[in-house]
Amino acid sequence: MINIKEILAESIEQSASDLHINVGLPPIMRVHTELIAMEYPAVTDEEARQMVLEMVGQDKFQEFEEKRDLDFSTYIDDGSRFRVNAHYQRESIALSFRAISNYIPVLDELNLPDIVKELTELPRGLVVVTGHTGSGKSTTLASMIGSINEKRSKRIITLEDPVEYALENDNCMIEQREIGADCVTFASGLRHVLRQDPDVILVGEMRDLETTSSTITAAETGHLVFSTLHTVNASQTVERIIDIYPGSQQNQIRAMLSNTLQAVISQTLFRRVDKPGMVPCTEILLCTSAVRNCIRENRVFEIPNIIETSRKIGMQSMDNSIADMYFRGFIDREEAVMRSSNPGKMEKLFSQHGNAVPA
């Protein structure tokens, strides 16, 4: 019988970010974006079933069999923690593990723009961190909360599914509520959070209308609120939030969002070429009066142009960030060109400047 804790321990030793269990295959880990098969025999259906039972117990396993999907967290003896999704595929159990570092990096270690640190000093409003799964959103948010915890005296309440980074009280008083264990849903947690005297609220994900509405209301009532969305850029983020609402409510939400949204940080990870590891490239939108007018008047298509012409105040497009990371020697030229929104323009920029950083 394959020992899941042994497999997880080995994946940590190999610096894997993810581990995948599929019946009929050996365990497969992701190391710096590459999928690598581990030296174990193929997992059987019974072994996959026992892995889930061992981690969640009989009651949760019954819930999993009814709903066919289950999110939870687990840990191994050395204290390493993992976010886990158990699901069914082709009528057999599969598991996806995401390693959660016990160390919360400070913002300066993440190679994020300086403006990100300034956003932690906002008194109120909504800051949304976006990107695809595995783009580092959770790490960025944990580091931002860590910065507040270090410098300010606030009461912070997080709603997470599941709790990832364990945040310790420093200058702040922190409560972390896990969906399913400490409250039923994001929406139910948000309904009660305003009665718990928070200064800062972290909502793991704005995944439906009720959660999104409650998140914006919390920001509207004078709290600093952080949340995430699975979108790839700032203008798409604004559109996604508005599109969650029925058409009859969209004018109202445009007005609310234009008043409460403070910033959007969209990020994606690139493999580093200067040393092992990953580095984020980011698009930054700051809600200036021009941006607020675009949101309010349904001219979201103008936001990319505003970002492009507002670099002096801290905004930047994703392509600006990709070019910067290339010129700093962090990422590969071919990948930078391929993943830019305009590969031809990016190739031309690189050819004009060689390895010199453009002014």
Rank of each mutant, 00 (worst) to 15 (best):
Q176L: 04
I174G: 01
P276F: 04
D243F: 10
L167Q: 14
L70Y: 11
M318S: 03
I12R: 06
L194S: 03
K117S: 10
S214P: 02
M315Q: 03
M29G: 03
L209R: 05
E6Y: 09
A94T: 12
T221E: 03
R177Q: 05
R254M: 01
H353R: 08
L224C: 03
D170E: 12
E91W: 11
I179E: 00
V200R: 02
G344Y: 10
L122F: 10
S15V: 11
V232M: 11
I322A: 04
I100E: 05
N169I: 07
N111I: 05
K117I: 11
N342V: 12
F330K: 12
S351C: 12
L285T: 05
D45Y: 08
F226R: 06
F186G: 01
V273Y: 08
E334D: 15
I322D: 01
A336G: 09
N342M: 14
I284P: 00
P41Q: 11
E10W: 02
V238T: 05
M315P: 01
G57S: 04
T140F: 04
Q262C: 14
D45H: 10
A336R: 00
Q176E: 03
I265E: 05
M55F: 09
F226S: 02
E308R: 08
L202C: 04
Q352T: 15
C172P: 04
L269H: 04
G180D: 00
V203W: 03
I306V: 06
T215F: 03
T44N: 09
V238Q: 00
E220R: 01
Q262K: 15
S15F: 11
S289M: 13
E121L: 14
M325E: 11
R30N: 07
E91G: 10
S153D: 14
R328S: 14
N251V: 12
E13H: 14
I4C: 02
D69M: 12
E334I: 13
F327A: 03
R68W: 11
L122V: 09
N298F: 09
K275G: 09
E178V: 06
